[in-house]
């Protein structure tokens, strides 16, 4: 409990560049991404990883079934693709 910080490290802003994101996850070995256009943005399916990423203009939601290493990898790549302050 002591290690939990109450203050966030940074905030993200802007819109995610899907092509940039897909290119970066491919470089990290995730090669089965399928991108579908939805009503409010995109849905990225990672079938082998049992993971779904819902991307809208001002939000990204990662539904990841319990694989923490994969989730942290996706989080790192996502943070690289977005602007921060």
């Amino acid at each position: 409990e002591d290690v939990l910080k109450k203050k966030p490290s940074n905030y993200t802003w802007g819109t995610l560049d899907i092509d940039d994101f897909i290119q970066k996850i491919t470089q990290e070995g995730i090669t089965d991404a399928k991108v579908e256009q939805g009503p409010n943005g995109y849905i990225i399916h990672l079938q082998n990883e049992d993971t779904l990423i819902q991307v809208e203009d001002h939000s990204t939601h990662i539904y990841c079934e319990g694989d923490e290493q994969l989730r942290l990898k996706l989080r790192n790549i996502l943070l690289q693709c977005l602007n921060k302050f």
């Binding site: 993200t12 001002h58 939000s59 939601h61 990662i62």
Partner: peptide, 20 residues
């Protein structure tokens, strides 16, 4: 931060995770 961003015209990008 939400109000400061909206006054400055910065579009926050909210990231959320869900695991089951």
């Amino acid at each position: 931060v939400d109000r400061a961003c909206s006054e400055a015209g910065v579009n926050r990008h909210q990231i959320r995770f869900t695991s089951t």
